[in-house]
Design a protein around this nucleic acid. Structure first.
Length: 571
DNA sequence: TTCGTAATAT
DNA sequence: AATATTACGA
């Protein structure tokens, strides 16, 4: 039932537990330019343990020759800033020209050097050496670059035509929904989705670091840092803010639908997101929306026109019972505020607003709208896992239309009837499809094990739980017909705006705090490489200018590890 | 670690 | 105005 091409890969790897992307790593060719044999060995081992194709060169000049020959495909170049012969920056420029993601490694804290590297297009500047975390995400960097280039290219093409120019807030966000279904757009959609995933994964990494930081130095540090040092927006930008996702009626309806399916007491952000199966949504977004909805403070994006009556008091907005124990998984109220009958109500309607359907229906009557239980919530870690779940089976696969639901359905078969009923109410699944996995529906709320188990099952079955992320800006609101349940009859098509094209995007983060070293056992030792606050290690990121075409289209054999300059001869 | 909630930020 | 982020208690 759940094996597919994944299972094998899974066992094949030891380092990362999940493996949907294992294959991808195999396709990434890394060129290591390092003269210190010791480091080379070490890094090669690490890289190889993650299945990257590696080749090493001891001198910049050699690497240069290599590149110029263009015989071998190189996706990533990891370069020691201090190379014996040639200037590593020269090499960098060459790499840039070839669209190779370049990571610089330096064994000293040299901000100038770092800045220079980044300005010149290096993707990352690392202190000391490769860190496992980075290795783990290396392929994503590559993918990201590719995607960006691809997008840039498409964009150019697109602009040539009629294409809507404006494009809301600069964020990509074209509107030909139909095209999504066309093969031509698939890559794009997919690309966007993937880049979003990566985006999140990166922030994930960063967040971890920040989290760690906080733990070390107490809260607020985050802010201090980002302010105190953000003198130059070139440096330090902690976490990029995600473009806003518009919670369109459609999206909201879907959200509500899921919420209903999950039922009272089981509405956790994480779960909701999974079931919603909208790759571009992040848990945070879901949480945020959930928060709004619970307090009944969410209003569909204004219909640009009329009906902008402002009711001073937000209705009974969230009379969140502060009662004793915190309730987890509370299901938000069924609030399907929709344009529907908002036909210019006469001036008096005042309080009308979107709440109109709430008053009467808030208790556990309407269909699924339960509203009772409470429960403890469990759940496993996400931060660590997430990246692995990025749904990128194949970089250019079109994941958009794939429907992963079946696998999951099995798990929830038993609840079928209930949901089918719902479906009959018009809760069709969006085009993107995939139906809700009805796992986790177990009715023994509050049972940690149960939930976890379900999660596991899910993963195992590879129901592709992609915790993708990001920027879904704008959703087509086609003709959404919504019934009182919030059911929507409309094709839910989404667009994913480009999070970065408009983003100067440079530094991910950096830090200069001094303090105890304290690495915590949480196996996040990688942090040290990333952020060693004490030693002022830092990591910069530079997404570089998108341009040219994609590298890495085909994979070549390039396992051999050359060392030093015999390479040139061998080619 | 995640969740929920409030407070902020953008 | 609507979202995203963060703080922070649990």
């Amino acid at each position: 039932m759940f094996e597919e091409e994944n299972s094998q890969t899974v066992e094949g790897m030891n380092n990362s537990m999940t493996a949907p992307y294992y294959d991808m790593r195999k396709d990434v060719c890394v060129m290591l330019v390092e003269h210190d044999k010791k480091c080379v060995t070490q890094m090669v081992d690490l890289l190889k343990s993650y299945s990257y194709k590696v080749m090493t060169v001891g001198r910049a000049s050699t690497a240069m020759k290599f590149l110029s020959k263009g015989k071998e495909k190189v996706d990533v170049m990891i370069v020691n800033v201090h190379l014996p012969d040639l200037d590593s920056f020269q090499l960098l420029s060459q790499a840039i020209a070839l669209d190779i993601v370049s990571l610089f490694i330096c064994d000293e804290h040299n901000e100038l050097l770092a800045n220079k590297a980044l300005n010149d297009g290096a993707y990352l500047y690392l202190k000391n050496s490769l860190d496992e975390t980075i290795v783990k995400y290396l392929w994503q960097f590559v993918l990201r670059e590719k995607i960006q280039r691809e997008k840039a290219r498409k964009k150019l093409e697109g602009n040539g035509d009629k294409m809507n120019v404006g494009d809301d807030d600069g964020i990509g966000n074209n509107n030909n929904v139909e095209d999504k279904e066309k093969a031509g757009e698939k890559n794009i959609s997919n690309a966007e989705e993937q880049i979003n995933n990566i985006y999140e994964a990166e922030n994930e990494v960063i967040s971890n670091e920040i989290y760690k930081l906080r733990r070390k130095r107490g809260r607020k540090i985050t802010k201090e840092i980002s302010e105190g040092e953000s003198q130059s927006n070139t440096i330090n930008e902690t976490v990029r803010r995600k473009a806003c996702t518009e919670w369109t009626v459609d999206l909201h309806a879907k959200f509500m639908k899921v919420v209903q399916q999950l039922g009272e007491g089981r509405c956790y952000p994480k779960e909701i997101r999974k079931v919603m199966n909208v790759p571009s949504l992040t848990k945070m977004q879901v949480s945020s929306h959930l928060q709004k909805c619970r307090s009944n403070n969410w209003r569909a994006p204004k219909e640009k026109k009329s009906c902008r009556q402002r009711s001073g008091q937000k209705f009974s907005s969230g009379y969140q019972q502060r009662s004793r124990f915190r309730k987890y998984g509370t299901m938000p109220h069924l609030q399907t505020n929709i344009p529907m009958q908002q036909q210019q109500r006469n001036p008096h309607q005042t309080q009308r607003d979107p709440e109109f359907l709430f008053p009467t229906l808030n208790t556990s009557n309407n269909f699924i709208r339960g509203e009772t239980l409470t429960l403890q919530h469990p759940d496993s870690s996400q931060l660590q896992v997430q990246p692995h779940y990025l749904r990128i089976d194949n970089p250019f696969n079109n994941l958009f239309l794939s429907d992963q639901s079946n696998a999951g359905d099995e798990l929830g078969q038993q609840y079928g009837s209930l949901f089918e009923m719902l479906d009959l109410q018009g809760l069709q699944d969006p085009i993107i499809g995939s139906t809700n996995y009805r796992f986790g529906q177990t009715f023994n709320i509050g049972d940690h094990h149960t939930q976890n188990d379900n999660n596991l099952d899910l993963n195992a079955a590879h129901v592709t739980t992609y915790l993708g992320s990001a920027i879904m800006s704008g959703t087509n609101m086609g003709n959404a017909i919504i019934d009182e349940l919030g059911a929507v009859n409309a094709n839910f098509k989404q667009y994913i705006g480009d999070p970065n094209m408009s983003d100067p995007s440079n530094i991910i983060a950096t830090s200069h705090a001094g303090d105890t070293k304290g690495s915590d056992s949480t196996e996040r030792k990688n942090c040290d490489a990333y952020f060693d606050y004490n030693n002022k290690d830092y990591l910069f990121q530079n997404l570089g200018p998108p341009s040219a075409n994609l590298p890495n289209e085909h994979v070549r054999k390039f396992d051999q590890v050359y060392y030093d300059d015999q390479v040139s001869a061998s080619i």
